[in-house]
Write a protein that binds this DNA or RNA. Structure first.
Lengths: 118, 118
DNA sequence: CTGGTACCTGGAGCGCGCTCCAGGTCAAGC
DNA sequence: GCTTGACCTGGAGCGCGCTCCAGGTACCAG
């Protein structure tokens, strides 16, 4: 039940202050609580949600789709849709990994080729 | 020793005509041979090189670095540097795969969590 | 010969995901 | 009280990697 300043959150999540504000502005993050003078005060829940956002972004989900997921999460009774969305994304991450592994094999082949030359 | 029209190359490589011209313009691809009337005629070598470019791009190498690699490849006696560049990239691909795998575990955890709920 | 399609050029435009800026308010240490 | 630095807002700008466009030329089927 702690509260965090923007600076702390930036440090913990690895997101910039600008990105944090940007995410809030476009509706990826619900309006963050404010102190009486208008400064943001993030909650543990906010931090948890930002972790999820980071997971989705790092794995290449487009912002649009993340917004769709955020919208679903605001509404109970969307569990099935959330599962569907995440599963679809999981498949794309799986494919992405497979592609990288296969291209990495080419890369290593090329390196070995150079090694044999030099 | 075949020759290919731009359309054929686009189909084979999965790159758009615009992207092919773009790559040539920025020096990723050496000037392609032309017919007497000025149309491009790609060689097997061009196709092979485009495969390499695709491998590097798909694995997330920035265009700038690809240009650097292309420059090295125009100059003999840069084998060591090419190896260094590719190895560095290979490391980054390895890290990328590891990150994706770890984030994918989170993703699957989240999905399982929803499954237990619904 | 004619039409349709593929190709040519230089340069502008775009979508994404931030990132930066100006001009201001607030909080905390000296 | 004063300074310093963290934070606020709205909106403009940016870097990347293409993508599109206008206006023109060449090839090919019928």
């Amino acid at each position: 039940m702690s509260r965090y300043t923007p600076g702390e959150v930036a440090q913990r999540t690895g997101l910039s202050l600008d990105t944090l504000r940007y995410y809030e502005r476009i509706g990826l993050l619900d309006d963050v609580d404010r102190t009486p003078t208008g400064r943001r005060e993030y909650s543990d829940d906010d931090l948890g949600w930002l972790e999820i956002l980071r997971c989705l972004r790092e794995t290449g989900m487009p912002i649009q789709q993340m917004r769709r997921y955020a919208d679903l999460c605001r509404d109970d009774g969307t569990i099935a849709e959330r599962i569907a969305l995440l599963e679809q994304h999981d498949d794309s991450v799986r494919d992405q990994i497979a592609m990288l592994q296969s291209q990495r094999a080419h890369l290593r082949g090329k390196i070995d080729f150079y090694r044999a030359q030099g």
